[in-house]
């Protein structure tokens, strides 16, 4: 790239640089600053250490457990669905993907409140089940309700990246595996799943991270009785205890980074993508 082109690129990207600085980098620095200081601005590790407090610690564990369960359920639901979508003919594919994205057009809060209405005692589901003789099916305000909310809200984020990777797999690669003697399951395990790892990784990150940090879903479907780490942070913010909130957020960030490191391992790094393109030209 010559100098002129580079300067032009810099010019074009400058608004984004400003955006990133103003809304990502600087707030992040503030969080780090608040996380390591007390109200008076003196350095302290107390905010970080407070995670060891039983109330906070339990909330973190509950958050981790529920978000892992939700991520696993999302993966198990999304993968077969993405696979079915891939094998449909094109015109149907577009429609089904559209149907799947449709709920995302609706406000996240509204969707969650809708689930509250459905799951509530004497709510839609309870009434319907009572009508056919099943009494006392109440999962509102339980971890199960929170998981249900998470799965419902975040499932599209798992389906789309996996679907995107699957549709890019050449039909003939799958045919080749069949041709070489592999049955459906062998083809799935040895060819399709390994080739779709980048999509699975993106999906896991995109479901796990918001599930780990959510406080809205647990608020609405957990009835405010089940506290996730997100709720704790939210309460600290509301109580104007920014230092405490920042400290706990930093702890949370560690888990997010761990998750990203593990799932990011299989994402194609830029180098191999570039090499692949080079090879394509050579061909």
């Amino acid at each position: 790239m010559n100098k002129k082109a580079r300067r032009k690129n810099a010019l074009v990207s400058s608004p984004y640089m400003v955006w990133i600085a103003a809304f990502i980098i600087i707030p992040l620095l503030f969080i780090v600053y608040y996380g390591f200081t007390d109200g008076a601005g003196n350095f302290t590790l107390e905010q970080i250490k407070s995670i060891a407090r039983e109330e906070y610690y339990e909330a973190l564990i509950l958050s981790l457990v529920l978000s892992i369960i939700s991520t696993v359920i999302c993966l198990l639901l999304a993968y077969p669905l993405a696979l079915i979508l891939r094998n449909m003919n094109l015109s149907k594919q577009g429609f089904i993907v559209f149907v799947f994205i449709l709920p995302m057009w609706m406000n996240f809060l509204l969707r969650t409140y809708a689930w509250q209405a459905i799951l509530d005692i004497n709510g839609v589901l309870d009434t319907a089940l009572s009508a056919i003789g099943i009494e006392g099916f109440n999962i509102i305000n339980t971890p199960a309700a929170i998981v249900l909310g998470m799965v419902y809200d975040y499932l599209p984020f798992m389906v789309l990246p996996i679907y995107n990777v699957l549709v890019k797999i050449d039909d003939n690669v799958i045919n080749a595996a069949r041709d070489l003697g592999a049955n459906f399951w062998q083809t799935l395990v040895k060819i399709i799943i390994p080739l779709s790892k980048p999509g699975i990784a993106s999906g896991i990150i995109m479901v796990f991270v918001p599930a780990l940090t959510t406080f809205v879903i647990s608020d609405i479907l957990g009835g405010g009785k089940l506290l996730l780490i997100g709720n704790i942070v939210e309460r600290q913010v509301k109580a104007d205890n920014l230092n405490q909130a920042a400290g706990l957020s930093l702890v949370l960030m560690v888990f997010i980074i761990i998750n990203m490191l593990f799932s990011g391992k299989d994402e194609p790094d830029i180098k191999t993508v570039k090499e692949g393109k080079k090879n394509e030209k050579l061909r």
Binding site: N172, V173, N175, A176, A177, L195
Partner: peptide, 9 residues
Amino acid sequence: FQKYALFTH
């Protein structure tokens, strides 16, 4: 196959 269809992984 056309375009080889090797297993790239």
